[in-house]
Design a binder for these strands. Structure first.
Lengths: 209, 209, 209, 209
DNA sequence: GATGAATGAGTATTCATTCAT
DNA sequence: TATGAATGAATACTCATTCAT
């Protein structure tokens, strides 16, 4: 990579980090592009060389931060092989790890907010912000293959879990409503297991209301 | 009610309805207070006699529209007593009825959007926009009492259901992602039943992960 | 007229006059709306209560100033009845009077510039800026009726004269190119008479208005 | 011409042609130097190696395109010797030919617009864009010499004709105001002949149609 | 000569809110 | 109560021009 390219990467990184910091602390609506550029140490016009507008940089950040979140959550898997001996346990492990990160960093939760939902999973896949951003669906597919059980409509199952986790965490972590996160966890995990269980493939199984 | 009061109520109603129409069609960010006042046929200054700002009117609308939604959903209950002979069936009936309304009116879903979640249930209770707006929690409590089964932590149970329904419907109805609403329903209702079931009170039952 | 209306008229006048002064001295491209509002003693937003943008105010000024120009030119007619005893002489009188005003005020010529052409005659008619702005075409029609001669296609005749006068004056007055205005006048007036003459109606003539 | 020079000429030509295309379709104000450079396939900085700014390239284009216009108009002269047996007829022939080109290409008229007037004739002379761009005044002088008649102040005569033609054509071709070009032609040509006639050097001179 | 990344001055427009009537 | 004229802060975005490579 040439000196010029390094310089460009540095500028882009600086804009991303600065925007993240400002969006977290003031919200996107109270952050102007001038603010971002100024604090990133580049001219206003330079912002537009890298991003279309502040919503563009916001989307890229959500993708990137979500990616980091899941990568961190998955990172510990190998060290906890015994806790994660089944698919269910592995999912719970990853989810618990993710939730713990969010409990530690509620601003991050606020930032990726309700966006940590299905829409994200699709976007993240297609537009990695950094070359090492992960591909959730691919990861999930691989995870499924590591275990012997097969599941009906795994995508719907994943969707249901993601939506349930993300929307309940938001309320529990940020507002302790209706109860705090630690209190909620056993109920939540029980429901996740129940969702997974209901998708377990068996001869006579059919979806019914 | 005096003529003056009627006149005032009329202005307020006109502002609420106009704002609802504009928020639905253009979104709140693209709707100015001028727009609302103009189209409601009152002067701009008059807006401020009734509402603090457009977020105030927005919140009141979300509460009111949510209230309508649930009232409509509950309205048919008496006529379908046989379908709703248990608590579970009754919940499914109400939820299905709600979802059907949203399928018919996706703009309404977009409007109350992800707001149709736990936060709303608290607000709606405390600040009825119209005197006949309902009190969800009270209604839910009454509903529970009508059936013999008792449930552990009914508020958590309700929370879990509300969050799961609202976040999955958003994606399924508006974007048919990952599947359309009709396809999703059996999976969703199965999970709701499973959540309710797991809260059924029994001597030996305890919440565990 | 109430106090409020007077106040509004005063603001509008102030904006028009200020814009005229600035457009004349700096050109429209170098004049910002802030400049106009500031120097007119009103807030920037107030500008938009009266005009759509600076091109709107520019058009209104061109119309109004053109109207003044012709009103002034026509004003002396009554005092010079003997000089203007025929239609030709009257036209020459009005044109000469107009040109003399522009020679005295070349900035005005620059301002209404090449706009003092056919397009203007149509606009001015339809959108008077002030209630006393004149209607050129109506005035021209009345003028024609005051004299016994009839003319073929008087509108085309007028068009030809207006275009010839406005484009030659621009060059002659502002740049003395190819000669100065006084030198050009005899040639120009001879040609105008010739144009009028060629439109004079005769029995055997076919094109008639 | 060396290879390097050819390369340079090619870049310059590409910039000129691209600018012409963009100015015609979007107008000069909506065309940025970036647009021109990008679409011409050169770097932005390269633009400045050949032209001062976009007004520079615009002027050069107006001159060049006007030159082409008149060259085309004059090109057919030799083949129509019988139609152009007098100076008057020759002028009319050239003007008619020019007008016909503009009718076919109204965008070109819009582009050189009201600029197709006296100012241009001076500029074109002094700064040929291409080595074969013509010198109008010299051409006009030669044309005059080819015929026996002598004229008073031929430059004023030419000026008057150019201004009359250019300003009336603009309105007639682009807006059919006050009439379309074909309708206008007989009136216009009659007036041009009258202008020429009035400059004819002779004792008994009178302006006649 | 050629490039194109970086710059940052420049400006139109919106709109929530106030307050004199 | 009701009005709507007036305010002016706030901000996104463009683009001509430079200059290090």
């Amino acid at each position: 990579m040439g000196k010029l390219d390094e310089n460009k990467k540095h500028k882009r990184d600086s804009l991303l980090e600065t925007a993240f910091r400002l969006f977290m602390s003031q919200g996107i609506n109270n952050t102007s592009i001038s603010d971002i550029a100024d604090q990133a140490g580049v001219a206003k016009g330079t912002f537009y060389l890298y991003f279309k507008d502040k919503y563009d940089i916001n989307n890229k950040l959500i993708c990137h931060k979500s990616s980091q979140l899941f990568r961190n959550a998955s990172a510990g898997l190998d060290d906890h092989a015994e806790e994660a001996s089944t698919f269910e346990d592995t999912m719970i492990y990853i989810i618990d790890s993710t939730i713990n990160q969010l409990v530690e960093n509620p601003n991050l939760l606020k930032f990726i907010a309700k966006n940590l939902s299905w829409g994200i999973f699709k976007n993240v896949m297609s537009t990695p912000v950094y070359e090492d951003d992960i591909d959730f669906r691919e990861d999930f597919r691989r995870l499924l293959e590591r275990f012997p059980e097969r599941y009906d409509d795994p995508e719907i199952m994943l969707f249901m879990i993601v939506e349930l986790v993300s929307s309940t965490c938001y309320s529990a972590i940020l507002y302790s409503e209706p109860v705090d996160m630690e209190t909620l966890k056993p109920y939540l995990y029980r429901n996740i297991r129940s969702i997974i269980c209901s998708h377990k493939m068996a001869e006579s199984k059919t979806a019914d209301a």
